[in-house]
Design a protein around this nucleic acid. Structure first.
Lengths: 193, 193
DNA sequence: ATAATTTCTTGTCATTTATCAAGTACTTAT
DNA sequence: ATAAGTACTTGATAAATGACAAGAAATTAT
C-alpha cells in the first residue's frame, strides 16, 4: 500500500501540504488489472474515480460499423475518468480498457464529494485537472482539424514517445484518426528521409 | 441591469435556490460589443469570466499559414471562457470575437474564487459546467475523427440550426474543419435530394 | 513446438477533401 | 449611389486518405 506515486501526483500539479494530500488519498484503495481487461464498460455508470499508477489504458467507442475508434490513451501517472458518467451519473458511451498490465487507485464519488466540499486545496486541484484536460482536448481538436495525418503522427511521437514503446500501431492509428495502413505508409515515408 | 437571463441560466442547469443565485451574480457587470469586435485577444491573460447573454461569439486560432481555424462557436445564453488563461493565468492561444452584436455579463477571478470557496452550490455548478463542456468537446473530437464532412454538417444543422441563421458559411466551414468551397459543394449535393 | 490469431506492411484503386482561380451576389463604407 | 470588400459558388485538378485484399512478421494459445 505505497501511495507515494499517487501522493506525488498531487504535489507535481499544485503546491499543497503533505498532510492535506494524505488526508485526500486516505480513502483510495489499490487494485491491479491484466492487459486487455475492461476497466469500465459501455452503458454503465462509473461509480469510482481511477488513478492509473502504472501502465497504459485507452478509451474507445464502437462506431456504426462496429469499428473501434480510440478516443484517448492514458499513460501513468494520471487520473482516468469518464467525467459525464462519474459526476452526472450518466451511462458511459466509451469503453475503458487496459493496454498493458496496470495498477490503479480508486475512490468513490462520495469520498470525492467530501473532499471537494471540505478541503479547499482539493477543490483547486480538481478544477486544475479539468482545466488541463479540457485544454489538452481542445489542442487535439485543433490539431485534428488543421493538421494532416503525418504532422499529427510526428507531434505524438515528439510529445509522447513512450506510447510507441507500449501501444500497438493499430491503436495509435485509431487514436490519430487514421487507418493502420495509412499510418504504416506515413512511417515508411518518414523513414526514407 | 436585468439579470434574469443570467440568473435563469443557473436554474436551468442545476437545482439551486433563488437567493443563492442572486448572491453569486451580485458581482457581475454588463456590457455590450458590436459585431466583429474582439472580446479577448491572443497572447493576453483573461482576467474575466464572460456570460454571453445575447448574440454569437466565436474563438479561432491562426495557423502557420495565417489562416483562420474556428475552434468554437458560442450561442447565447452560455459562458464564454478561456479556461487555461483564466484559471492558470496563461496567455491565450485563441482569439475570441463577436460574430453579431452581443451583450455580456462579466466578473473577475477574485469574485469567482470567493464564490467557489464559499458557496457549495457554485462549486457544483462550476464543476458541472466543466463536465458538460468537456463532454461536448469530446463528442466533437470523436465526430471529427470518425465522420466525414457531410455527416458533420448534417449533425450541426440538426443540433444547432440557429447558427445557420446567424453565422456565415465561411465561419461554419472553418468550425467544421473544411474549406468554404467544400461546404458549398456539400450543400449543393444535399439540396439535390 | 505448432497452430491460431493478431499486427504490420504493401499493392491497387476509389473516395474525400483541398487548392487555385474565376465569376456572381451581397454588404458595407464613403 | 458607387466603389470596395466580402461571401458564396463552381470548375478543373491535385493531394490526402480510405477500402479491400494478400502476404509477412510477431505474438499468443494449446
Amino acid at each position: 500500500m505505497d501511495k507515494s506515486i499517487l501522493n506525488n501526483y498531487f504535489h507535481s500539479l499544485f503546491p499543497i501540504q503533505k498532510e492535506t494530500v494524505m488526508k485526500i488519498t486516505e480513502t483510495f484503495c489499490d487494485f491491479t488489472l491484466d492487459k486487455n481487461t475492461t476497466l469500465l464498460d459501455k452503458n454503465t455508470i462509473s461509480t469510482k474515480t481511477y488513478f492509473l499508477e502504472k501502465g497504459y489504458v485507452r478509451s474507445y467507442i464502437l462506431n456504426e460499423d462496429n469499428e473501434i475508434v480510440t478516443t484517448n490513451i492514458y499513460s501513468a501517472p494520471c487520473f482516468v475518468n469518464d467525467f459525464l458518467s462519474f459526476f452526472k451519473k450518466q451511462p458511459t458511451k466509451e469503453i475503458y480498457q487496459t493496454i498493458t498490465d496496470c495498477s490503479f487507485w480508486e475512490t468513490s464519488l462520495e469520498n470525492v464529494q467530501t473532499n471537494f466540499h471540505n478541503i479547499s486545496e482539493f477543490r483547486e486541484f480538481s478544477r486544475l485537472l479539468f482545466v488541463i484536460n479540457y485544454s489538452k482536448l481542445n489542442d487535439r481538436l485543433i490539431e485534428m482539424k488543421s493538421q494532416k495525418a503525418e504532422t499529427r503522427y510526428l507531434n505524438l511521437l515528439k510529445q509522447q514517445p513512450n506510447i510507441f514503446q507500449n501501444v500497438s500501431l493499430k491503436i495509435i492509428a485509431s487514436y490519430l484518426g487514421i487507418t493502420d495502413s495509412t499510418l504504416s505508409r506515413i512511417r515508411k515515408e518518414i523513414s526514407k528521409i
